[in-house]
Computed example of a mutant assay.
Amino acid sequence: MSVSLYNACAVVGASTLSYISFKTLSTLLFYLHSSKIQRYHHGHEPWALVTGASDGIGLEFVNQLAQRGFNVILHGRSETKLKKRLSELQPKYKTSFKLLVLDATAPATPEFDETVLSAVQGLNLTVVIHNVAGNGEAKVDMPMFLDFSAKQCDGWIDVNARFTTHLTRLLLPVLLKSQPGLMLFMSSAVTEMASPGASLYTGAKAYLEALTKCLNVEMKMQGHDIEMKSLTTGMVATTQTGRSEKDVSFVVASTRAFVRATLAQVGWSWGTPRITPYIGHWVQFGLITSLPTRLQDMIVISMVKKVQAQMAKRD
Rank of each mutant, 00 (worst) to 15 (best):
D113K: 15
R294Y: 07
Q240F: 05
V101N: 12
D158G: 05
G181V: 03
R314G: 09
L175T: 01
P107A: 02
S230R: 00
I301D: 12
K246N: 14
A210M: 09
K306F: 05
E209Y: 02
V50I: 14
E209C: 02
Y201L: 00
S35D: 09
T239D: 15
T293W: 12
L176H: 12
R294L: 12
V11A: 05
P292I: 12
T16I: 15
D247C: 05
N160M: 00
T115S: 14
A138G: 09
R85G: 06
N216R: 10
Q310V: 02
P46F: 09
I299Q: 13
I301A: 15
E114P: 06
T165K: 01
S149R: 11
W47V: 04
K305H: 12
R68N: 14
A264Y: 01
K313G: 08
I73H: 03
A108E: 11
V304H: 02
Y6G: 15
T27L: 15
P273I: 07
V50G: 08
A53D: 06
H41A: 08
L171W: 11
N71Q: 00
S35E: 10
L231P: 02
G155S: 11
N124P: 07
G122T: 04
L32P: 10
A161N: 08
T27K: 13
N124K: 04
L117A: 03
S26W: 08
D297T: 13
G122H: 03
H75A: 10
P173G: 01
M235Y: 01
T212V: 00
A237N: 01
P173N: 06
A66Y: 03
P173A: 00
D103H: 05
G223H: 09
T276C: 13
